[in-house]
Simulated scan of single mutants.
Amino acid sequence: MANNHHGADQESRVAVLVDCDNTTPEILEYALRVVAQFGRVVLRRGYGNHTTLANKWQEALVRLAFTPCLQYQYAAGKNTSDIALALDAVEALFDERADTFCLVTSDSDFAYLCRKLRERGATVHIVGEAKSPDALRNASDQFFEWVKPEPVVEQPQAASKAEAAKPDPTKPVAKQRPLFVVEAVALLAADSSEGKVSVGGLGSYLKRADPSFSPKKYGHSGLLDMLKTYDLLKVQQESGGHWTVRLASTVN
């Protein structure tokens, strides 16, 4: 099955399998944004022991609709989660439930799984941290390195009573330009030979990355109207009548 990043009659089916014992919950939203360009996510599973899943991972797995896959440790120091993840990945491939896999891990033990999946025709992406060894990076079709973001310290501001009051529903919503739209264009355009992406393809990607996404939520009548307000983006109509968008910095 051919991969189509911008949607098609037959989209790639993506499985996102997370080695929770080996990484941090903060990586999960980044992983979902990355894989949204490759197709429809049909499997979301997080693997770990009781301590991992019941504590630091519980909030993220629930909020992002992942199925927790609890693996008890049968002996001290033994990790059964890796075997469970690998077996589920092979089973999903053979059952034809998924043809594209995103493994969220920095553990080189998964390099062999990556090679076996690819031998069977699957596409394998890995989202990992800087500590990921070359043996793991090179076993995938594409490796995405997650870097822990620097904490943002906001200066406290004294809000007046008027500002603290509930917004007036009769007033139009102020137009906003969220940065994640620019990040989405940069991600998709980087995979394009012309450095641009169709507005329709961008819309499909944004919906996959965040099912609740709507330009109206940010005060815009539609996605094209929204994109035209960005200084960092350049929108243009092509000869065929469709619209494309690229980063303004890439325009000659």
Score class of each variant (00 low, 15 high):
Gly203Ile: 06
Asn252Ser: 11
Ala2Val: 15
Pro149Phe: 14
Phe144Ser: 06
Asn252Asp: 14
Val34Phe: 10
Ala130Gly: 00
Asn55Trp: 02
Asn3Gly: 11
Thr80Asp: 14
Thr51Pro: 01
Glu26Val: 14
Arg120Phe: 04
Ala189Cys: 13
Arg63Thr: 14
Gln73Pro: 03
Lys166Leu: 13
Thr67Pro: 05
Lys56Met: 08
Leu202Gln: 09
Lys78Tyr: 11
Gln237Gly: 05
Val251Trp: 04
Val104Pro: 02
Ser204Ile: 15
Gly200Met: 05
Leu17Ala: 01
Leu188Pro: 06
Ile126Pro: 00
Ala186Trp: 03
Leu32Thr: 04
Ala189Leu: 02
Leu43Asn: 07
Thr51Asp: 10
Ser212Leu: 12
Ala111Arg: 01
Lys228Thr: 11
Val199Asn: 00
Ala15Tyr: 06
Val251Ala: 10
Trp243Pro: 00
Arg177Met: 04
Glu150Asp: 11
Leu136Ile: 09
His220Arg: 06
Leu136Phe: 08
Tyr47Asn: 00
Gly203His: 07
Pro133Cys: 09
Tyr205Lys: 05
Ser221Glu: 12
Asp99Lys: 02
Tyr72Trp: 14
Asp88Gln: 02
Glu145Gly: 03
Val152His: 03
Val251Asn: 02
Ala186Arg: 15
Leu64Thr: 05
Ala165His: 06
Lys216Gly: 06
Gly48Met: 07
Gly200Trp: 07
Ala122Lys: 01
Asn138Gln: 11
Val41Thr: 15
Leu53Ile: 09
Ala2Tyr: 11
Ala209Val: 08
Val245Met: 09
Leu179Lys: 11
Asn49Gln: 09
Arg45Ala: 04
Asp225Met: 08
Arg13Val: 04
Gly219Tyr: 04
Ala174Glu: 12
Arg115Cys: 04
Val251Ile: 05
Ile27Met: 05
Tyr205Met: 06
Ala36Asn: 08
Leu87Thr: 13
Ser160Lys: 09
Phe66Ile: 07
Leu70Arg: 15
Arg137Val: 03
Cys69Ile: 15
Gln236Ile: 10
Pro215Tyr: 09
Leu64Lys: 05
Val34Ala: 14
Ala209Gly: 04
Tyr205Cys: 01
Phe144Arg: 02
Asp231Val: 14
Asn4His: 12
Phe38Leu: 10
Trp57Glu: 01
Arg97Gly: 12
His50Arg: 08
Pro178Arg: 13
Asp231Tyr: 15
Asp82Trp: 12
Leu233Gln: 07
Val173Glu: 07
Ala76Cys: 00
Ser249Tyr: 03
Met1Asn: 08
Pro68Val: 12
Lys56Thr: 13
Lys166Gln: 13
Phe144Glu: 01
Ala76Glu: 12
Gln142Lys: 13
Leu113Phe: 01
Gln155Ile: 12
